[in-house]
Design a protein around this nucleic acid. Structure first.
Lengths: 182, 182
DNA sequence: GTCAAGTATCTCAACATTGAGAGATTGGGT
DNA sequence: ACCCAATCTCTCAATGTTGAGATACTTGAC
């Protein structure tokens, strides 16, 4: 078992699944240098963290009769402010999915009466998607439970650790060009 | 526009899409406290980082005729070492997907001649999945390009930043119980 | 030994997404 | 005015995943 971070004497640093993965690659492919393995480990940790956090969110959304894709649309409409309206294209870019996925999400939400579609008065190719009263009430309730759950899942990290993590991720995102929602 | 990190005077810190999202929520729901918004932002950054990194990996896998799910299985078998063999259950736990997904992945890889399924001699419920020679050669080639690409995508971060990010993510993962691959 | 509970894999329907493409509309250049 | 490229949304087949259930086998308690 390698100790890539040189922290064997630091009792507070426990190993995670990715340390195991890195050690396996190091044993099997000793030709890969440390920087490569570190990159692989970091990307792997981001993926696994996303996976576990997403899994932990599901039950909260389910309590409100939603799944993440639906909540994502409702929350996007909610946070742009009254009249809680965007075009399908605006939603698409914010959600980072393709147009087919947005059509599907809107169909589901429309059937539930949480959003309405109306023609865009200034561009007849576009539609305007708007939260219904029921939709606004639901997302306003759901978001409170959702963020409380997120805080709970991050509970093991101190404010300093969260700040460091957040700052480094912001720099990564900026470098990947993720500078705008729409 | 809020400045949640108090870094307005630090010219080197650019805003990303999540800063925009946070500002929108702050304006629309001033009742949500800073810690809640910070948690939402951090989780959002992890999700967006995963999404962008995953998207950036696709073309590399495609160059080798693979998609991520297939590469994931091949890489898991490769890194356990000779004879590059695991049960379907072992693969399932490492990949964090359900049994149906693993069956599907193995079917595809078997059709391509990259893995073989044989009965487990010591447990007749189980199957042993093994890299073929073609599978081992392919994954050994693909992994080199893959990690080079990962390094490239992380290129904007200094070694110190990567270390801080990695360390904080490890602590998060450990706190979420992600301590073993299998 | 027998039986119940647990485990390993596969099957299958439901669902979300992608990616290519169609249809309608817009807008700039000529 | 006209055209052509770009834009906006929807459609649809293909793909991958989940989650429940079926089947076969193993294990431990009695």
């Amino acid at each position: 078992m390698v100790d890539p971070k040189g922290l064997a004497s630091t009792a507070s640093t426990d190993a995670d699944a990715i340390d195991e993965l890195r050690a396996q690659w190091h044993r099997e492919r000793p030709d890969m240098d440390a920087a490569s393995l570190d990159a692989m480990a970091l990307v792997g940790r981001i993926k696994r963290a996303d996976h576990l956090l997403s899994k932990g969110m599901k039950p909260i959304f389910a309590e409100h009769g939603l799944e993440f894709p639906e909540f994502d649309v409702l929350a996007t409409l909610r946070r742009v402010g009254a009249p809680h309206e965007l075009t399908a294209g605006g939603l698409l870019k914010s959600a980072m999915v393709t147009s087919g996925a947005i059509t599907n999400r809107l169909d589901k939400l429309e059937r539930k009466g949480l959003i309405e579609r109306r023609p865009d008065p200034s561009d007849r190719r576009a539609i305007r998607v708007r939260l219904t009263e029921a939709g606004r009430e639901l997302v306003d309730r759901a978001v409170v439970d959702h963020v409380a759950n997120e805080e709970r899942m991050l509970g093991a990290l101190s404010a300093e650790e969260r700040g460091a993590l957040d700052g480094a991720l912001r720099r990564l995102l900026v470098s990947l060009g993720d500078t705008h929602l729409g």
